[in-house]
């Protein structure tokens, strides 16, 4: 990334500081990733994926929800239409996320944006956007910091790939890590992210719709369908309730 040039490029030391700020900010989320990565790796190895195939999957796809869903449906040989369809459904929220990101990326050329978007997951996106909104409020001329976003992304990506591979290696030995409570790190991280997005009770009403629908679908339908179902229901509610 050091060879990157951009129109209104920031000086290298500043960019490095932004990268480090992103890495530091991602640290708690990295800790939240670890138990999930270990569990995913262990589940994948139980489905017959090798210790090399697991990091190839998590390194090329880098989408935890779709990976859990795909591994849950994995057969030998895998059913391509099923795997592709479920991946699309779990990840179609990225379309909305990318569109919400776009206004903050206008000053960047596509050759920088397209590779950067490879790393867009729920967490890196939420953190990048939250930082850009803070920056806009603080009067930063360029609210979105690509270096900060990449710092966040590098930390999260490396954690995910390394610990899913470790999970595949340790799979059989690991046992049930939910016993130790580490799985609660994930909701904790998300709840804090939600607090950061909180504006008003009214603005949070679609979240309640999402939660209710996601819980219902989670209890009634096997697999990871509750994620797209809850997200779409909340978005539809927001659309219906919007003041024209």
């Amino acid at each position: 990334m050091t060879g990157m040039t951009q129109g209104r490029s920031m000086p290298v030391p500043e960019r490095r500081a932004e990268l480090a700020r992103g890495l530091r900010a991602s640290l708690p989320v990295m800790i939240g990733f670890i138990p999930f990565a270990l569990v995913l790796g262990a589940q994948a190895s139980a489905k017959g994926l090798g210790a090399l195939e697991v990091p190839i999957l998590t390194g090329l796809n880098f989408g935890g929800g779709s990976e859990f869903a795909a591994i849950g449906l994995w057969t030998s040989p895998p059913h391509l239409l099923l795997i592709g369809g479920v991946t699309m459904l779990v990840n179609c929220r990225h379309l909305l996320m990318g569109a919400a990101f776009a206004p903050y990326l206008r000053h960047l050329p596509r050759r920088q944006v397209l590779p950067a978007l490879f790393f867009m997951c729920d967490e890196s996106w939420a953190m990048g956007l939250a930082d850009a909104r803070l920056g806009a409020r603080a009067g930063r001329s360029q609210p979105f910091s690509l270096a900060y976003y990449l710092g966040v992304s590098i930390g999260l990506y490396a954690t995910w790939v390394v610990f899913t591979a470790l999970g595949a290696l340790l799979g059989p030995v690991l046992g049930d890590i939910t016993r130790y409570g580490f799985d609660m790190a994930f909701p904790a991280v998300f709840l804090v992210l939600l607090r950061g997005m909180w504006k008003s009770v009214r603005a949070a009403m679609p979240w309640a719709v999402s939660l209710a629908v996601a819980i219902a679908v989670y209890l009634l339908v096997p697999g990871a369908w509750y994620v797209p179902a809850g997200a779409v229901a909340g978005v539809l509610a927001a659309c219906a309730w919007a003041r024209p």
Binding site: V209, Y218, V227, A237, W241, R243
Partner: peptide, 20 residues
């Protein structure tokens, strides 16, 4: 309004199993 609500909707859906 949709774009404003979407991130929270996704996050809350992902952690729904914890509530269930």
């Amino acid at each position: 309004a949709v774009m404003d609500a979407a991130p929270g909707c996704v996050l809350v859906s992902v952690i729904a199993p914890a509530f269930a």
